[in-house]
Amino acid sequence: MERVLTAKGAATRQRIVEGAALLVRDRGVANVGLDDICASTATSKSQLFHYFPDGKADLMLAVVRYEAEQVITDQLPQLADLTTWRKWQAWRRRVIQIYDAQRAACPLRALTTQLGTADPATREVVDGLTDTWAAYLAAGVQALKDAGEIDPRIDVQKTANSILAAVTGGATLLQSTNRLSYLEDALTEALDNMRRPRNQYVAGGG
């Protein structure tokens, strides 16, 4: 059973998690020790173990959950309202802005590279993030389909998955090459592909 923290306790715990997340993004989990986290967050070892009884493993799982939340939160409110083509374009601009600003200091990179996904608990969080992200995108594709803006024969889930793959793949290449064009081109192409079936459908008269 999780302990119920006071407002002050919750704020302290959150400060530790956020401080640890920044260190992991910068150095990688293997190069971040408890002493580093304590120094960075002005926290004593006794405080740290009070909130994270299992030490680093416990804290790193909290960091994983925090970073997964950040990936989605950074895209809101645009991600939750993909109901028109104009709003899809606003979301595209937001995504590019986010990853251009973050570059290597990216929550997604921290999850997939720095923290790794070999641990079952981490994998569960990353899977949950992927499912949540894809669900938002699928809702947006369905909204365009219902509005008649894209071909009614389009596969909503496959389209959402391809857009998600464009973002994550483009972001990964951005982080490894420092070239934003990979993300810009991949996401633009994925969104354009979503609309192409309608043009062919109308032109063919079928």
Results as ranks from 00 to 15, higher is better:
residue 91 W to V: 02
residue 54 D to E: 12
residue 162 S to P: 11
residue 180 L to W: 01
residue 165 A to H: 06
residue 6 T to S: 14
residue 42 A to Y: 00
residue 143 A to L: 05
residue 97 Q to G: 15
residue 168 T to E: 09
residue 94 R to V: 03
residue 162 S to Y: 00
residue 118 A to E: 11
residue 179 R to L: 09
residue 7 A to F: 06
residue 203 A to L: 15
residue 99 Y to S: 06
residue 18 E to A: 14
residue 145 K to V: 10
residue 72 I to A: 03
residue 109 R to I: 10
residue 30 A to S: 14
residue 92 R to Q: 05
residue 141 V to W: 01
residue 151 D to G: 03
residue 31 N to E: 08
residue 66 Y to E: 07
residue 177 T to A: 10
residue 87 K to G: 05
residue 194 M to S: 06
residue 45 K to L: 10
residue 48 L to N: 02
residue 131 D to F: 10
residue 198 R to M: 15
residue 131 D to E: 13
residue 71 V to G: 05
residue 147 A to R: 11
residue 44 S to Y: 02
residue 15 R to L: 09
residue 126 V to M: 09
residue 85 W to F: 12
residue 169 G to I: 05
residue 78 Q to N: 11
residue 150 I to A: 01
residue 143 A to H: 05
residue 192 D to V: 14
residue 120 P to Y: 03
residue 92 R to L: 10
residue 157 Q to H: 11
residue 150 I to D: 01
residue 81 D to A: 14
residue 125 V to A: 07
residue 137 L to F: 01
residue 126 V to E: 02
residue 31 N to G: 14
residue 91 W to H: 11
residue 55 G to R: 01
residue 181 S to P: 01
residue 130 T to R: 14
residue 192 D to G: 15
residue 146 D to N: 13
residue 90 A to K: 08
residue 91 W to A: 07
residue 96 I to P: 00
residue 79 L to A: 02
residue 145 K to F: 07
residue 40 S to C: 08
residue 2 E to P: 15
residue 196 R to N: 12
residue 104 A to N: 06
residue 53 P to S: 01
residue 43 T to Y: 01
residue 9 G to A: 10
residue 37 I to Y: 04
residue 74 D to I: 07
residue 13 R to C: 04
residue 125 V to P: 01
residue 72 I to S: 02
residue 154 I to F: 08
residue 13 R to F: 09
residue 43 T to N: 01
residue 22 L to R: 13
residue 33 G to Y: 04
residue 164 L to F: 04
residue 167 V to K: 09
residue 203 A to F: 11
residue 191 L to D: 05
residue 71 V to N: 03
residue 119 D to W: 02
residue 147 A to D: 05
residue 82 L to N: 01
residue 153 R to N: 13
residue 187 L to D: 00
residue 199 N to W: 06
residue 43 T to V: 03
residue 117 T to S: 11
residue 197 P to E: 00
residue 22 L to C: 12
residue 138 A to Y: 03
residue 39 A to H: 07
residue 44 S to R: 03
residue 24 V to H: 00
residue 198 R to V: 10
residue 1 M to F: 05
residue 40 S to G: 11
residue 190 A to H: 08
residue 93 R to W: 00
residue 54 D to N: 15
residue 168 T to S: 14
residue 120 P to A: 05
residue 152 P to A: 12
residue 101 A to D: 09
residue 106 C to V: 04
residue 160 A to Y: 04
residue 53 P to G: 03
residue 121 A to C: 12
residue 87 K to A: 07
residue 78 Q to D: 13
residue 183 L to E: 06
residue 75 Q to H: 11
residue 91 W to T: 04
residue 97 Q to V: 05
residue 150 I to G: 01
residue 161 N to W: 00
residue 141 V to A: 06
residue 65 R to P: 05
residue 204 G to Y: 00
residue 149 E to R: 15
residue 46 S to L: 04
residue 146 D to Q: 13
residue 36 D to I: 01
residue 57 A to D: 15
residue 160 A to V: 08
residue 141 V to I: 04
residue 99 Y to L: 05
residue 186 A to N: 10
residue 22 L to F: 07
residue 190 A to Q: 06
residue 121 A to H: 10
residue 161 N to G: 14
residue 186 A to G: 11
residue 147 A to H: 06
residue 160 A to I: 06
residue 107 P to A: 07
residue 125 V to E: 02
residue 148 G to D: 07
residue 132 T to M: 08
residue 62 A to Q: 04
residue 92 R to P: 07
residue 100 D to Y: 06
residue 6 T to G: 04
residue 163 I to V: 15
residue 30 A to P: 12
residue 3 R to S: 08
residue 51 Y to V: 04
residue 74 D to Y: 09
residue 30 A to F: 08
residue 83 T to S: 15
